[in-house]
Amino acid sequence: MNTFLWGGLPYLVLGILVTGLIWRFRYDQFGWTTRSSESYERRILHIASPLFHYGILAVLAGHIIGIFIPASWTDAAGVSDKTYHLFSLIAGTAAGILAIVGIVGLVYRRRRYAPVFRATTKNDKFMYVFLVGNIALGLWAKLSHADYDYRSTIGPWARSLFVLQPDVELMTNVPTAFQIHALIGMALFAILPFTRLVHMFSAPVKYLFRPYIVYRSRDPKQLAEGRTRRGWESVEP
């Protein structure tokens, strides 16, 4: 069981994530959007959305630092374990609270305003359960095990996945809260390509580098008859 959870499942999730993204990119670019509801309601979104997004980006950065920077590196840099964990606790909790406050505001807004609620799909609700649940779980795991040294267990395990030699043993004695958080996190990655969360993969970084005005020639392929793509089907019966 442990071997499957911590040695097999991560690769399965990665596989689903990658093939899911490729599938979505090839067959459903038309559905690849933020599906913004800002035009329905602006007041709460203006506060809650940046709170959540900046919070979750900070959380992501924290995970990357925690998992991919080995303890030996920070030691070498002269950062004591105590300082590191204090920083991790304060910054991590702050980021987590930002994200939680933001997403609670967003979910409240979604329920409270009829147009936004009507634009919420089953897929969205399903995704929200995982997203909200996992942020809460992560924060709970962090706060209930404030002095837990994840850098000697979870970190090395996560790194071992990337060198294709998963060290399953490292995860067996990790507190349950962290285990559940990791499992639901993997579930979140697995459903990611099939939900609106895909918009995170189109973060428009290249906007910083392209010229302002975009010119494009008519695509000769689009002049001739081609296969109808999603969203372009004839509306005639």
Binding site: S202, P204, V214, Y215, S217, R218
Partner: peptide, 11 residues
């Protein structure tokens, strides 16, 4: 447009 999805047609 951050995505570069809007364009001016050359022709």
């Amino acid at each position: 447009c951050p995505s570069g999805a809007i364009y001016k047609r050359v022709e």
